[in-house]
Computed example of a mutant assay.
Amino acid sequence: MPEKVISVCEEKIYEQLYREHAEKICYYLYYKYGDMEKAQDIVQDSFAKLWINCSKILFGAAKSFLYKIANNASINAIVHQKTVLKYQEIEQKTYTNESPEFQMEEKEFMHRLNMAISGLKEGQREVFLLNRIEKKTYKEIAEMLGISVKAVEKRMHLALVILRKKIKTPNL
């Protein structure tokens, strides 16, 4: 007797997929990119795309479809945001009392810092940004990532060691 094909287009199945995966995908995006509101929006869009394409998606492939759509949407959002920021930076004219040399050194330092942060391993980068940008405590980070406080401390220590080495100014 042939196996019954489970259709994602059935409302109960779709709701089951939502209950099982929406929150997990949302936290995955939040941990990876650091924006909960954007993560929630992308999860909703991903499930909308699943519903639109439900006749083409097998039940067994629905989870990977959702993660793929959500991850791609997040990457596209980040690329878009970087483009917007780049053009805003060009349009903004700032006047400052700082010397051109200082401005150039500061720009070079920020470039080295950003490159160093982006070069960290994902776990180290997550911990560093959650602590230094989001102002989360080690305990809060440990709970969010589902790891021990010691693991957070170790990741942070390694991140700081690497960042110090990579952003060290050449003249010092």
Score class of each variant (00 low, 15 high):
residue 2 P to K: 11
residue 11 E to F: 03
residue 11 E to K: 06
residue 13 I to T: 06
residue 15 E to A: 10
residue 16 Q to T: 12
residue 17 L to D: 00
residue 20 E to T: 02
residue 21 H to P: 01
residue 21 H to F: 03
residue 23 E to L: 09
residue 23 E to K: 05
residue 26 C to V: 08
residue 26 C to S: 10
residue 30 Y to R: 07
residue 30 Y to P: 03
residue 30 Y to K: 05
residue 37 E to I: 04
residue 37 E to K: 01
residue 38 K to A: 10
residue 40 Q to F: 07
residue 43 V to K: 00
residue 44 Q to H: 07
residue 45 D to K: 13
residue 47 F to L: 06
residue 47 F to Q: 08
residue 48 A to H: 12
residue 51 W to Y: 15
residue 52 I to F: 15
residue 55 S to N: 15
residue 56 K to G: 01
residue 56 K to W: 04
residue 58 L to R: 15
residue 58 L to P: 08
residue 60 G to C: 05
residue 61 A to M: 11
residue 62 A to T: 09
residue 66 L to M: 09
residue 67 Y to G: 07
residue 68 K to R: 10
residue 69 I to F: 10
residue 71 N to K: 10
residue 72 N to T: 05
residue 72 N to P: 00
residue 74 S to P: 00
residue 76 N to W: 00
residue 78 I to F: 08
residue 82 K to D: 06
residue 87 Y to M: 05
residue 88 Q to E: 07
residue 91 E to T: 11
residue 91 E to C: 05
residue 92 Q to I: 14
residue 94 T to I: 13
residue 98 E to D: 08
residue 100 P to C: 08
residue 100 P to I: 06
residue 104 M to F: 13
residue 105 E to L: 15
residue 105 E to M: 12
residue 108 E to V: 14
residue 110 M to A: 07
residue 110 M to T: 09
residue 111 H to L: 14
residue 112 R to V: 00
residue 113 L to M: 04
residue 116 A to K: 01
residue 116 A to R: 01
residue 117 I to L: 05
residue 118 S to I: 01
residue 118 S to F: 03
residue 119 G to P: 00
residue 120 L to Y: 02
residue 124 Q to M: 08
residue 125 R to M: 06
residue 127 V to H: 01
residue 129 L to P: 02
residue 132 R to F: 11
residue 133 I to R: 11
residue 134 E to G: 11
residue 136 K to D: 07
residue 136 K to A: 09
residue 137 T to P: 04
residue 139 K to L: 06
residue 140 E to V: 08
residue 141 I to L: 02
residue 144 M to P: 07
residue 146 G to P: 14
residue 149 V to T: 12
residue 149 V to N: 09
residue 152 V to M: 00
residue 153 E to K: 07
residue 155 R to G: 09
residue 160 L to I: 14
residue 164 R to E: 14
residue 168 K to M: 09
